[in-house]
Design a protein around this nucleic acid. Structure first.
Lengths: 195, 195
DNA sequence: GCCGCTCTTGACCGTCTGGTCAAGAGACTC
DNA sequence: GAGTCTCTTGACCAGACGGTCAAGAGCGGC
């Protein structure tokens, strides 16, 4: 199948399937949620599902790919006109926090996908891009003397780790605001435990 | 069932099931791995499985609980005779890195469990304990003036986030040594990006 | 050598799953 | 209003799954 040409009505239906399925998968688990659950919840026949997607796996792959693209798009838009490297990092963190807050289900789904080899392979490219983006800003900030000189990849991983973990624990679990959590993440990335 | 009294032979069989299943679940995914896969791989009949566990879910619950207990036991042993709060934090991070390196499959499984509500409830208590342990050391270090004065819970989350993420990315994915990664994590937690 | 307990076997079962498909509905063109 | 293309229906299927159970093996004590 690969690409099917869709009318506006078809594109709307596809979006509906992607959104609804992503929420159900995140709530209930990917495997425990059946295709029948999805089409049943939407009140359509099973054939609708297989008109838009080759398989249940194909749908999850689409959800993951679109999530990664959307997050990156938001990040790039947030830092587009920022010349200062350290501020690009900060704005990227803040934009990510807002995206994580608004797309909790996609965060959960990405985390799930990372735990099964079949899916983690599909995630890898997007995660490499995210890492490369962060590494670039870290290196730029080093050149400008804004941050200390050590391994940029390790620092980038640490930044992504703090950001993701604080989003899950403080925004998703504790219900704190994205901006407050972004402030905390930025502060920790800046100075560590030294405050 | 709850508790079954087991002979030494039975305890050995149970361990074999837990270990083998944990590896298969982590490699292949929990849902895609069937009970038949597990008993087949071990060369025993299906009844063996249901002699030791009420259900497949029961087995996963046991794996998760034992993993959390084991990690905490290792952490406590590592910091037992350390009086300095900041060093307790560092030794805890280092011990965790070694445990993560030696128990990659359990890390993956825990991450999976966090993505399905049924399991994340089972994880919560253990994670709260891990957080409380970390918070305690952070507070102690604050009192001793070793680290800056800000919200201990947030800092503890950040420390756990960095540790877990660097373990997955640098140890599991890149194959770096637990000690090197522990050094990196400790450095980042100390000073952030300032190096 | 019998008993009783722990442990093992594997055929069997009801249920549910992802996926198919022949049939047809709607809408747009000419 | 015929023809065509997109989209929808839902009964159907083969296979796989988690879980059961009657039967029996191994092994200890006595």
């Amino acid at each position: 199948m690969g690409e099917r040409r869709l009318t506006p009505r078809g594109r709307e239906r596809r979006r509906q399937l992607v959104d609804y399925a992503a929420h159900r998968f995140a709530e209930n688990g990917f495997h425990p949620t059946s295709v029948a659950d999805i089409v049943g919840g939407l009140g359509v026949g099973k054939g609708v599902f297989y008109w838009y997607f080759e398989s249940k796996d194909d749908l999850l792959a689409a959800i993951l790919a679109e999530a990664q693209q959307d997050l990156r798009r938001v990040q790039q838009a947030a830092i587009a006109d920022e010349e200062d490297a350290a501020l690009r990092l900060e704005k990227g963190i803040r934009a990510s926090m807002h995206w994580f807050a608004a797309n909790r289900h996609l965060v959960t789904l990405t985390q799930f996908a990372a735990t099964e080899q079949r899916w983690s392979a599909a995630l890898r490219r997007g995660q490499e891009v995210a890492l490369a983006d962060t590494v670039k800003h870290v290196k730029d900030a080093m050149v400008q003397g804004q941050i200390g000189d050590s391994e940029p990849e390790v620092l980038a991983h640490a930044v992504l780790g703090v950001t993701g973990h604080l989003a899950r624990e403080l925004i998703h679990r504790n219900g704190e605001s994205p901006d407050a959590v972004a402030d905390a993440a930025i502060a920790f990335c800046r100075h560590g435990l030294l405050g």
